[in-house]
Design a protein around this nucleic acid. Structure first.
Lengths: 225, 225
DNA sequence: CGCTGTCTTGAATGAATTCAACCCATGTGG
DNA sequence: CCACATGGGTTGAATTCATTCAAGACAGCG
């Protein structure tokens, strides 16, 4: 990890709502998100936008576009954000020198695939209410995993329009579906703060199978001493 | 690649429609698809199914479940299929010995992410007709890429129900949307054989941005002599 | 011959979008 | 301090898209 940090350039501040990279830009580097929230998204000709992922500190940004010449996703800061960047050649050096780290990168890419598959399952096969429930639970769990959530509440720095872009609904319908979750006493809202009053109920509504992650498997390549 | 082939077990025949692995099964290995078509999918409690990907010869199967204890996706043969398997520890050995190959695996995982993102964009933000167009074009292009398509036609070994499970529509609606593509003279059908009479029109309808893949970049780690 | 699976069509229902309007908090400039 | 603009959030009504339920057509197969 020290090797990776040495490769990374200085941390750059992106204020809330500022784009870090546009889709179509030439792909030159990867980004490491140190502080703040970022969304990756793409748009269609008619302006419709789909958000692929809400990124938290510790995430690698821009990796999916590694194998293409022009970026497929736009990266945009949701909050004030600290980001540093790594050249692709640098990443390649990591693979040559640190097989254990390389394998961990590979596994993390597979984990991202899993998250995308889960969202696709939700968007393709569930109604709006369940989609929103699934997204909220996803954020809830991920924030806990990286230690950024203490209590049963989350401050979501996203407008309902953005949330609609995650789950594939219009602003208006996202709003109605939010109200329904509240009416069913699964959540409470205070501005953009969301209180998860009935996590189990929400999780059951979301209806996605639980996942058990393997964190430090024996079969990983040896690391350096 | 020879190293990989040495690791792989013998090729096993799975007849059409036979499951190779169920979601929930313990994750022990990866699969290499040598011959035939396979779909990976997952289901919800109510029985709704989402197909994540249609796999062709050369694909690695089961990788997304690498980081979890119980498989997230069901793998099922669409046609008669030849599959061999690799232990996860074996893959790990590849990472330790062949950094160039490891990097290629990593990039292929990112490419898979890209494909999933594209499908999510389509399913989340497009109407049925465009979703089907996008899927057909995707299959059309991928088959050409691996040299399994000569003319302007594809034999899709999938029922309309399965196709609906890819693009997130019911059987009935998938059927209507198929008819519309035909009515608009974008395709012709003869059983499960699909003739792409107007590839450009279909591609435009699908409305997804074109991708330029980097195939052998200079920054890849050195391979063995 | 009667299965079964798949494709197809019609009609009714339901979910989500569209269009429109209104509310409210914030911020800004006169 | 007011007038006004701006970005969200919320609600209603009409419309469109997709699902559901039902039934018929057809081919392949025992």
């Amino acid at each position: 990890m020290r090797a990776l940090r040495d490769l990374a350039g200085p941390a750059v501040l992106f204020p809330a709502n500022k784009p870090i990279r546009y889709e179509g830009d030439p792909v030159e580097k990867l980004y490491l998100l140190q502080e703040g929230w970022v969304v990756s998204s793409a748009s269609l000709a008619d302006g419709a936008r789909q958000i692929f992922k809400v990124h938290f500190p510790g995430d690698i940004l821009g990796a999916p576009s590694l194998a293409i010449t022009n970026a497929a996703e736009t990266l945009r800061a949701l909050t004030d954000t600290l980001v540093c960047s790594v050249s692709i050649a640098g990443l390649s050096g990591i693979f040559a020198q640190f097989p254990r780290l390389a394998m961990l990168f590979f596994m993390s890419a597979q984990e991202e695939r899993l998250i995308l598959m889960e969202r696709l399952l939700s968007v393709g096969r569930q109604r709006g209410v369940k989609r929103l429930a699934a997204f909220l639970i996803h954020v809830f769990d991920r924030l806990a995993m990286i230690g950024l959530r203490r209590d049963n509440a989350v401050d979501l720095p996203m407008s309902q329009e953005l949330i609609g872009d995650v789950i594939g609904l219009t602003t208006v319908h996202t709003n109605r579906v939010f109200s329904e979750l509240e009416r069913r006493s699964l959540i409470e809202r205070d501005g953009r703060r969301i209180v998860f009053c009935d996590v189990d109920g929400l999780r059951e509504l979301a209806g996605l199978p639980p996942r058990q992650f393997v964190r430090n498997p024996a079969w990983l390549p040896e690391g350096p001493q």
